[in-house]
Design a binder for these strands. Structure first.
Length: 342
DNA sequence: AAATCGTGGCC
DNA sequence: TGGCCAAGATT
């Protein structure tokens, strides 16, 4: 019942998105569905669009993507965040090419085994690209279903979501639920007045749609400090590649010291007359905030561990946003030369 | 299984 | 402006 209403709404109000086929049309290329779904994990549509277009133009097929080098793919992902997605993207592409003949497996169960594909993404690709009536539960669906039935537990939401999922047009239905959640049943100030299923909605009837879904309180973010070192020589700056796992894993970066303790200039990659830029770069991650002080020095270009990167091509290094901020600060200070010696 | 993992936009 | 949030996965 409700599913039909939502599909009818989708037929008239579906968003037009670069990775999407219109309602009722033949399903899009699984490669495109997969690429978009990975990028969209915990990431807004607006942020994904330019990355998706760039990736698709540069790597139009899974074979092309599988042949990419790690460094160029990580650089292309720079700025989008959650960088383990990029590593898993490449691992997944190579697995599909090497073990599945370059074709994505068509079932959610098989998709689920691939790197970077969890319960949600497996169901979404199976439904959208292959027409499997998989139960697709993302943050949008959780919110819509929790409100429709005034449910508090994730388990209850999943059961209801499964009961609601239609055998026909499962891909359109999944996207319809996500569009409904993204444009009408929003986290704050939901547009209940124009909601197609308002009359079926318990949360609306109870007069407090925003009370669902119930979120556990979030712990406070600790604050950390660190130094980043801008070492320049002969028009080049020293960059390192961070370890594959952990924060900003696998990304190019400025050398840094320890994050947390009282940061020390002793953590520099080598002794130099470091000048401290002010103010530090402030950056907020998911679970902590950071003040990154940038220390600059002109040095002799030697065999320090890392890459000496041409400063006039720094935009091609693929620095994540934190280090892009630090680099911009250093380049700006470099023009004005007002740094304080220390 | 709780912690970890980015970033930008919004109010 | 600071907290909240976004088409979650991994360990």
């Amino acid at each position: 019942m409700t599913a039909e209403t939502i599909l009818a709404w989708y037929d008239r109000h579906a968003r037009t998105l670069p990775w999407r086929s219109p309602p009722g049309a033949s399903p899009p290329d699984p490669y495109r569905v997969w690429l978009s779904e990975i990028m969209l994990q915990q990431t807004t549509v607006a942020a994904v669009k330019p990355y998706y277009e760039r990736f698709l133009a540069r790597w139009p097929s899974i074979e092309a993507l599988a042949a990419a080098e790690d460094a160029e793919l990580m650089a292309a992902w720079a700025g989008l965040g959650y960088y383990s997605r990029a590593r898993n993207l490449l691992a997944c592409a190579r697995t599909v090419v090497a073990e599945h003949g370059g074709r994505f497996p068509a079932s959610s169960a098989e998709l689920r085994r691939l790197p970077g594909i969890g319960d949600y993404t497996a169901a979404a690709i199976a439904a959208i690209a292959f027409g499997e009536p998989a139960v697709v539960v993302d943050g949008n669906v959780e919110r819509v279903v929790a409100r429709l039935f005034a449910l508090e537990s994730k388990a209850a939401v999943r059961l209801q979501a499964a009961a609601l999922t239609p055998a026909e047009r499962p891909g359109d239905y999944a996207q319809a639920m996500m569009d409904l959640g993204a444009t009408i049943c929003t986290p704050r100030n939901p547009a209940c007045a124009i909601c197609p299923v308002r009359s079926d909605c318990r949360a609306f009837a109870l007069g407090a749609p925003e009370a669902w879904p119930v979120r556990p309180p979030k712990p406070a973010k600790p604050h950390r400090r660190a130094f980043a070192f801008w070492a320049e020589a002969d028009g080049h700056v020293l960059l390192v590649t961070r370890p594959a796992k952990g924060l900003l894993g696998g990304m190019r970066a400025l050398p840094t010291g320890a994050w947390d303790a009282q940061p020390s200039l002793d953590d520099a990659p080598f002794p130099a007359p470091w000048r401290l830029l002010d103010p530090p770069v402030r950056h907020v991650f998911t679970h902590f905030s950071l003040d990154l002080s940038v220390a600059c020095a002109s040095v002799r270009r030697d065999n320090a561990a890392g890459e000496w990167w041409p400063m006039d091509r720094l935009d091609q290094a693929g620095l994540p946003t934190l280090f892009d901020k630090a680099a911009r600060l250093a380049l700006r200070e470099r023009m004005t030369e007002t740094a304080t010696a220390c």
